[in-house]
Design a protein around this nucleic acid. Sequence first.
DNA 1: TATTGTTATACTCTATAACTATA
DNA 2: TATAGTTATAGAGTATAACAATA
Lengths: 173, 173
Amino acid sequence: MRSPGEMADAPAAAGARNGQELSYGLLPQVLGYHLRRTQVAIFRHFSRTVAAEEDITPGLLGMLQVIAANPGLAQSRLAEAMEVDRSTIVKVVDQLEGRSLIVREPSPHDRRSYCLRLTEGGNAALQRMQALMRKHEDEFTQVLSAEERQLLIHLLARLHSRAEAEPGAAPPR
Amino acid sequence: MRSPGEMADAPAAAGARNGQELSYGLLPQVLGYHLRRTQVAIFRHFSRTVAAEEDITPGLLGMLQVIAANPGLAQSRLAEAMEVDRSTIVKVVDQLEGRSLIVREPSPHDRRSYCLRLTEGGNAALQRMQALMRKHEDEFTQVLSAEERQLLIHLLARLHSRAEAEPGAAPPR
DNA sequence: TATTGTTATACTCTATAACTATA
DNA sequence: TATAGTTATAGAGTATAACAATA
């Protein structure tokens, strides 16, 4: 518990303000804690790099990518894919459409629903954003080897895809 | 790109609603995407297990643990430790104090600041919560071996402690 | 009856700015 | 001047419930 480097210990930033060392108790053993810290860190890095040039959030960019990969997608399908409520999607789509990145086309088969598509400008913007995104992730993960990065992604994917299938999870909508 | 199990592909939950397969584009290669999904998944698991019995959130429990590990901690130090603004801590401490889990004692050295401490009941509650938390994390990570879980924590810790030290990050408050 | 998109509403988490009382 | 705690306020991001149009 004492040797530095063996355990995941206190982050570099905090403490040392008043000379006293601050203890994190059991938190360094808590996966959820590290997930949160890492997400905050990667979000901030994203803001300083990608968002500084393209005015986008990780969430919006994710939506754009899913729409791009599934032309004609309905809003409800997008909501399911991103695991958020239908109603939450509305404002997001409003934003993306307001910035002319996507369009809502009326569905030829169902007059209730829209088909979402990227505009030409949206596609161009997505290309630029993906380039920035790749650079951002490479930079953020540069402390890891390529193998470690891939391994990390695998471990996370196993956790969240597995957890979703658990009893009690993901109540049918 | 095709062999299942080699790449981190589409989550198990979504898709298959209309028979059509839904593509996630480049997202399965994006670390931030998996971080978010995993955090959502672990939060939901926490809600169904720990929170169902003890009415607590991961954030509040983290604060409790830090206060427990640093008796007499000032609110501003707690804010730094959790990397949130001073003002954000106020309501959190209000909540914990309102539930008699902690007390604000006046500091003997500085009449501006409080010393945060767990009450007896708070300590008892923390013990119960930590037991639930451990069970919750064990269950959530049961798809991983003990070594894989430890490795995952290490990789995350390297990422967020490293990222915090980067130029442009963590502006001095 | 069920589904699609929408609106109204509310709740949580967070930050900024300004205030007070100390230091 | 700087810091500790506080308040008011605002902005994301999310969910629930109800609605009209359509299936």
